[in-house]
Design a protein around this nucleic acid. Structure first.
Length: 572
DNA sequence: TCTAACGCTAGATAACCAACATGTTGGTT
C-alpha cells in the first residue's frame, strides 16, 4: 500500500474520468450520474475519504454506497480504480478530451472516434480543417468552425479556467446594482440571487431577480445604465450585461405572484434544488421555477416569497448561505435550523495591522476610532512580530496606553501575529508572548513543509491564543497548505486554541466546511478582518458570510463576546 | 450506482432557450 493516501481531489478526478469514459461507452446514464455525484461529494468532504473507505465508513456519506466505497479502496491499494483502468483500455486517451470542445458531447465524441477513426485533438483539428467532420451527420460547417476556434484557444487540453471573481469584489457591485434597480419606478421588488446571494467565496455570473409590471422598462434601465460596458443578451424579460470591471450580470424580471418560486430557483444551489425537488416528488409535488404542481390534480401553486414557499413545502425558511444540500433540508424539516450569527453581533476585532507593520496604512488610533465607529468595543492590534523586535513592542505598548485615555469607552489590546517557522517554532520567545493580551500564530512561508505538524506545535504553546488563516491559501492564486483539519480541530479543542475565520477577500480561511467542522467540535472561532487599513475593517462582512455558511451561531463566534469574557489570565 | 423500501425493484429535478442541424448539445439554478 502506498505510504500516502490519495487526496479527495485525486479520488474525485478518477470518478469524473470514469463517468466521462462510461458516458462515451454509452453506459447507463444513472450510473454516470452516480459517479459524478459521488465525485462532488468527495470533493466537498473535509476529511480524507480514502481513510474513511479503508475503515468501511465512506458509505456513510450520502451518494456513496458499497460499490463506490470499494472503488475508493482500490484507488488506495492499487493507485487506480479497476473500473477506470478497464475503461481506459477501451477508449483511446485523447477521446475524453473531445468532451471539452463546444458542441461535442459523449455521443458525438464516440462517433468521431468510431466512425471517423479520430483519437487525438491533433487528428480532430486536421479533420476539421479538411472539412471532413461535416461528413458525420449531426455535425456541419458551423461545428467545424467552433471546434477549430476552441482548439486555437487551447480548449480541450485542459478544462478552461473559469473566470471567477472574489466575493469581496462581486458583493459590493451586486449590492449597488440591486439598490439602483430597486429605486427605479418600474420595480416592485429586486433581489440578488445565485451564488453571490449564497455568499460563495468566489462567483462567476451575478444573478438578479426582479418583479415589475413593466418588465421592458426595467430591462431598459438595466441595459442602459452608465456602468454597462457590453450588452450580451437582451430579451423581453431577461438580459445579460458585462460591467466595466468585467463582472457579468443576469437580470430576470417576473410577475410578483411567483417571485418566491423564481427567487428560490435562481438562488440555488443546484444541489439544494435537486434534493428539494426529489423530496417533493416523493410527496406528489413537482417543483419548478414557475410554481409547485400538485401532481394528482395538476394544480399549480405559486408563492410571492421564499418564506411562503418553504413553509408550504413543510420546511423552516432556509437562509441562502445554507442551501448547499449539506443537511439543511433535513434540519429545516425538523425545525432545527441554527440562528445564524450576524454582522451586528460582533463586539470586537481580534486581528488588525497598524503602521507598525510595514504594510499597514492606518495608525493604531485611526484603526481604533474606525472600529469604534463600526460599533465595536475593543480592537486588538496584532502587528507582525518581525517589525516589533529590539524594544519596538514595548514602544507600541506605550502608544496604546497613552491612546486609551483619549478613546473613552473603548479598549485597545496588545496583540501580535507571530510567524510559525518552517521548523514549527515561533519567531518570538515565550517571555515576550506571555506579556501579551492575544497572540495569533500563522503560517506565512514553506506551506508545503509539514504544515499540520507546525500548526499543532504552535497550538501546544500555552501563549498562543489563536491560529491565523489556517491554510494560508490565496483564492484564485494558490491552494494553500494541505492541512489535516481533523487533527487541528481536535488539538484546538484540547488546548483551547481559537481558529480564526480570516475575512480578507482572497483568504476566507478557515473556509466554510472547515469552520463548520470546527464549530461542531466546539472550537472558539473569532471572525477577524486582518485589516491593514481602516476601510478593511468592513471585510468582516465576508467572514460573517463564511461563518453563516458554516452554520455558526452568535454563541460560537468568539468575538461576539465582550473582551472580559475572552481574556485569559496573564502572568504579567 | 445509490436510496428507499423490503427483497427484488423502481426512480433518479425541472423547464426553458438557443444553436446547429433535424436530435444532440450546452447553458441556467
Amino acid at each position: 500500500m502506498p505510504a500516502t493516501l490519495p487526496r479527495n481531489d485525486d479520488l474525485a478526478e478518477q470518478l469524473e474520468l470514469l463517468a466521462d469514459l462510461s458516458e462515451i461507452l454509452g453506459e447507463e446514464s444513472f450510473r454516470v450520474l452516480a459517479y459524478r455525484r459521488a465525485a462532488a461529494r468527495i470533493r466537498e468532504t473535509p476529511g480524507p475519504v480514502a481513510e474513511l473507505a479503508l475503515a468501511g465508513k465512506a458509505r456513510e456519506l450520502p451518494g456513496i454506497g458499497r460499490t463506490i466505497e470499494q472503488k475508493v479502496v482500490e484507488a488506495v491499494q492499487e493507485g487506480e480504480m479497476r473500473a477506470l483502468s478497464k475503461r481506459r483500455a477501451l477508449v483511446p486517451p485523447g477521446v475524453v478530451d473531445f468532451l471539452r470542445l463546444p458542441g461535442v458531447g459523449p455521443k458525438t465524441a464516440a462517433r468521431i472516434w468510431t466512425e471517423l477513426g479520430i483519437t487525438t485533438l491533433e487528428g480532430l483539428e486536421a479533420a476539421a480543417r479538411e472539412r471532413r467532420l461535416r461528413n458525420l451527420s449531426g455535425l456541419g460547417p458551423r461545428s467545424e468552425e467552433k471546434i477549430l476556434a476552441a482548439l486555437a484557444e487551447g480548449a480541450g487540453r485542459r478544462a478552461p479556467a473559469e473566470e471567477r471573481a472574489l466575493l469581496g469584489r462581486a458583493l459590493p457591485a451586486v449590492q449597488r446594482v440591486v439598490e439602483e434597480l430597486a429605486a427605479h419606478p418600474a420595480a416592485i421588488a429586486v433581489s440578488e440571487a445565485g451564488s453571490v446571494r449564497r455568499r460563495r467565496e468566489t462567483v462567476r455570473d451575478l444573478d438578479l431577480v426582479a418583479t415589475s409590471n413593466e418588465p421592458r422598462a426595467l430591462i431598459a434601465a438595466f441595459c442602459e445604465a452608465p456602468w454597462v460596458a457590453e450588452i450580451v443578451a437582451r430579451g423581453e424579460t431577461k438580459a445579460t450585461i458585462v460591467d466595466h470591471q468585467g463582472l457579468r450580470f443576469d437580470l430576470r424580471v417576473v410577475a410578483p405572484e411567483c417571485f418566491g418560486n423564481v427567487l428560490q430557483h435562481f438562488t440555488g444551489s443546484k444541489e439544494h434544488n435537486v434534493a428539494l425537488r426529489e423530496e417533493a416528488q416523493r410527496r406528489g409535488l413537482s417543483i419548478s421555477e414557475y410554481g409547485v404542481t400538485i401532481v394528482d390534480t395538476g394544480e399549480v401553486v405559486t408563492h410571492a416569497s421564499e418564506e411562503e414557499l418553504y413553509t408550504y413545502l413543510g420546511y423552516q425558511p432556509i437562509p441562502p448561505e445554507l442551501r448547499e444540500n449539506a443537511g439543511e433540508l433535513e434540519a429545516a424539516r425538523r425545525g432545527e435550523l441554527p440562528a445564524l450569527v450576524e454582522l451586528g453581533d460582533l463586539r470586537g476585532e481580534l486581528h488588525a495591522h497598524s503602521t507598525w507593520s510595514a504594510d499597514g496604512k492606518a495608525t493604531i488610533e485611526e484603526l481604533a476610532r474606525a472600529a469604534k465607529a463600526r460599533g465595536l468595543s475593543y480592537l486588538c492590534v496584532t502587528d507582525h512580530s518581525h517589525y516589533l523586535r529590539d524594544g519596538r513592542l514595548e514602544a507600541q505598548w506605550e502608544e496604546i496606553e497613552s491612546l486609551e485615555a483619549r478613546l473613552g469607552r473603548f479598549r485597545v489590546l496588545r496583540g501580535v501575529e507571530v510567524n510559525i517557522r518552517a521548523d514549527g517554532s515561533l519567531d518570538l520567545g515565550d517571555d515576550v508572548l506571555s506579556e501579551l493580551d492575544w497572540v495569533v500564530a500563522s503560517l506565512h512561508s514553506a506551506l508545503d513543509r509539514n504544515p499540520t505538524e507546525r500548526v499543532l506545535a504552535a497550538m501546544d504553546n500555552p501563549h498562543v491564543d489563536c491560529i491565523g488563516h489556517l491554510t494560508g491559501r490565496r483564492l484564485l492564486r494558490r491552494p494553500g497548505a494541505d492541512i489535516d483539519i481533523e487533527r487541528v480541530v481536535e488539538r484546538a479543542v484540547e488546548t483551547g486554541t481559537a481558529l480564526e475565520i480570516n475575512s480578507q477577500p482572497d483568504r476566507l480561511d478557515l473556509r466554510d466546511v472547515h469552520a463548520r467542522l470546527a464549530g461542531e467540535a466546539g472550537v472558539r472561532i473569532p471572525v477577524t478582518s486582518d485589516a491593514h487599513s481602516t476601510s478593511a475593517l468592513a471585510y468582516a462582512e465576508l467572514g460573517i458570510a463564511v461563518a453563516r455558511r458554516a452554520w455558526l451561531t452568535r454563541e460560537q463566534v468568539l468575538n461576539t463576546r465582550p473582551w472580559s469574557h475572552i481574556a485569559r489570565p496573564r502572568r504579567r
